[in-house]
Amino acid sequence: MEVRTIKVFTTVDNINLHTQVVDMSMTYGQQFGPTYLDGADVTKIKPHNSHEGKTFYVLPNDDTLRVEAFEYYHTTDPSFLGRYMSALNHTKKWKYPQVNGLTSIKWADNNCYLATALLTLQQIELKFNPPALQDAYYRARAGEAANFCALILAYCNKTVGELGDVRETMSYLFQHANLDSCKRVLNVVCKTCGQQQTTLKGVEAVMYMGTLSYEQFKKGVQIPCTCGKQATKYLVQQESPFVMMSAPPAQYELKHGTFTCASEYTGNYQCGHYKHITSKETLYCIDGALLTKSSEYKGPITDVFYKENSYTTTIK
């Protein structure tokens, strides 16, 4: 009895394709271990004539594949690729409408935090270190965002349907971005203890939790000093293409032309909904596939993004 075979390709990165001759009487799992086709788990399936010449994702289970996976995804987590594939199996079914010149995501599976993050990423200057993220990001900007969303979920250790947080998501993504040249110098002034300067680099240099107003941050924000008295913390120097200011959701007025974009969060910790506000020729609110415009805006804002380049204080 002759062994019926077909020729397929296996890959971990969709760049390096490895030619395989597979036995049609055995499952993919018996031949390769966990195997995925377009995100779908085909591990328990036997090869079919229609699979001839198709590319299958496999887990990096030998040295060659491990090197290829690390170079593309910059992670050695053995569960990463499987999590990416199972997320992709959902995100490829989502709709990605162009809204006001940006790629958004039609609401499904509690994905409003991903839509808000995706919209924000198209408006701030950011370059990702893992080629996987950078490639998928370019495709997302062009309207094909399924891979990018699935990668975000995998890097953030999230599953489809789980509630997510924009600030946490951005923080994970910033860790995989090139923020080497970003720098922030802060000064804390206390009447009792004097003053202390701190220099922050990388992710810490672009994120701040405690106030939404970048102007206020430049002037000074009140913080408790270690001595128990009130101290003032203010920005001395900022070198970065953008800054992200966050605070627990509270009524906040966004003035046209003073910011790049913002995240609105309605609801409580267990259950809520994100919308995205962007400042173009007027203010726009993007909620999944829905767009509304207004000249002014007041609502429960939790993150505001500002364009920056270089700032030095005039406070002496």
Rank of each mutant, 00 (worst) to 15 (best):
R4Y: 13
R4W: 12
T5G: 10
I6R: 07
I6M: 12
I6T: 11
K7L: 12
T10F: 11
T11D: 05
T11G: 06
D13T: 09
I15G: 05
I15S: 09
N16M: 08
L17V: 09
L17T: 08
L17A: 09
T19G: 13
T19F: 09
T19H: 13
Q20V: 14
Q20C: 11
Q20W: 08
V21L: 14
V22H: 03
D23Q: 13
D23T: 11
D23L: 14
M24V: 14
M26I: 13
M26L: 10
T27H: 11
T27C: 12
T27W: 08
T27G: 08
Q31M: 13
G33E: 05
Y36L: 04
Y36H: 06
Y36K: 01
L37Y: 13
A40I: 13
V42W: 13
V42I: 12
T43P: 05
I45Y: 12
I45L: 14
K46D: 12
K46Y: 12
H48T: 13
N49V: 13
E52C: 11
E52A: 14
E52H: 14
T55D: 03
F56W: 03
Y57M: 14
V58P: 05
P60G: 07
P60Y: 06
N61S: 14
D62M: 06
D62E: 10
D63T: 09
D63M: 09
T64K: 12
T64E: 15
L65W: 07
V67A: 12
E68G: 07
A69N: 03
A69F: 11
Y72F: 09
Y72E: 07
H74C: 07
T75S: 14
T75C: 09
S79R: 13
L81C: 09
S86H: 06
S86Q: 15
A87T: 06
L88V: 06
N89Q: 10
T91N: 05
T91G: 03
P97D: 08
P97R: 09
Q98M: 14
V99R: 10
V99F: 14
N100E: 14
N100Y: 07
G101L: 05
L102C: 06
T103L: 06
T103G: 04
S104K: 03
S104W: 01
I105D: 05
I105Q: 04
K106M: 13
A108Q: 09
D109F: 04
Y113V: 04
T116A: 12
T116Q: 06
T116K: 01
L118N: 05
Q122E: 04
L126R: 04
K127E: 12
K127A: 12
K127G: 07
Q134R: 13
Q134H: 11
D135E: 13
D135C: 07
D135T: 08
A136L: 03
Y137M: 12
Y138C: 15
R139N: 11
R139C: 12
A142W: 11
A142M: 13
A142L: 13
G143N: 04
G143P: 03
E144P: 03
E144W: 07
N147Y: 09
N147T: 12
F148Q: 01
C149H: 03
C149W: 06
C149V: 14
A150I: 01
A150T: 03
A150E: 01
I152F: 00
L153D: 04
A154L: 02
A154W: 03
A154K: 00
C156F: 02
N157S: 07
K158N: 03
V160D: 01
G161P: 03
G161T: 02
L163W: 08
L163K: 15
L163N: 05
G164M: 01
D165P: 03
V166W: 03
E168M: 11
M170P: 02
L173K: 02
F174Q: 02
F174S: 02
F174E: 01
F174R: 00
F174P: 01
A177E: 02
A177M: 06
N178A: 10
N178W: 04
N178G: 07
S181Y: 12
S181V: 07
C182L: 03
C182V: 05
K183V: 10
V185R: 06
V188S: 07
V188Y: 07
C190V: 02
C190M: 01
T192V: 11
G194S: 02
Q195A: 13
T198H: 14
T199W: 04
L200I: 10
L200Y: 12
G202A: 03
G202E: 06
V203I: 11
E204T: 07
E204R: 14
V206E: 00
M207K: 08
Y208G: 09
M209T: 15
T211H: 08
S213Y: 01
E215F: 03
E215G: 05
Q216L: 07
F217M: 12
K219H: 08
G220T: 03
G220P: 11
G220H: 01
Q222P: 13
I223K: 04
I223W: 09
P224H: 12
T226C: 11
G228Y: 01
G228C: 00
K229M: 14
Q230I: 15
K233C: 14
K233N: 06
K233G: 10
Y234M: 10
L235I: 10
V236D: 02
Q237G: 06
Q238P: 00
Q238R: 01
Q238T: 02
Q238A: 04
S240D: 01
P241L: 05
F242V: 01
M244A: 00
M244W: 04
M244G: 00
M245K: 00
M245C: 13
M245L: 09
P249L: 01
P249G: 00
A250C: 11
Q251W: 13
Y252R: 01
L254T: 00
K255P: 07
G257C: 05
G257S: 07
G257I: 00
T258G: 08
T258D: 13
F259P: 03
A262V: 00
Y265W: 02
T266K: 07
N268W: 08
N268E: 14
N268H: 14
Q270T: 10
Q270G: 13
C271R: 15
C271S: 10
G272V: 01
H273G: 00
Y274Q: 04
Y274I: 02
H276S: 05
H276T: 05
I277Y: 02
K280H: 10
T282L: 11
T282A: 14
Y284Q: 13
Y284P: 00
C285W: 00
D287Q: 00
D287L: 00
G288T: 04
L291E: 15
K293N: 11
K293T: 14
K293F: 10
S295R: 14
E296K: 10
E296L: 12
K298V: 15
K298A: 13
K298M: 12
G299W: 00
G299P: 02
V304K: 00
F305V: 11
F305I: 11
K307N: 13
E308Y: 04
S310F: 09
Y311S: 08
Y311V: 08
I315S: 15
I315C: 14
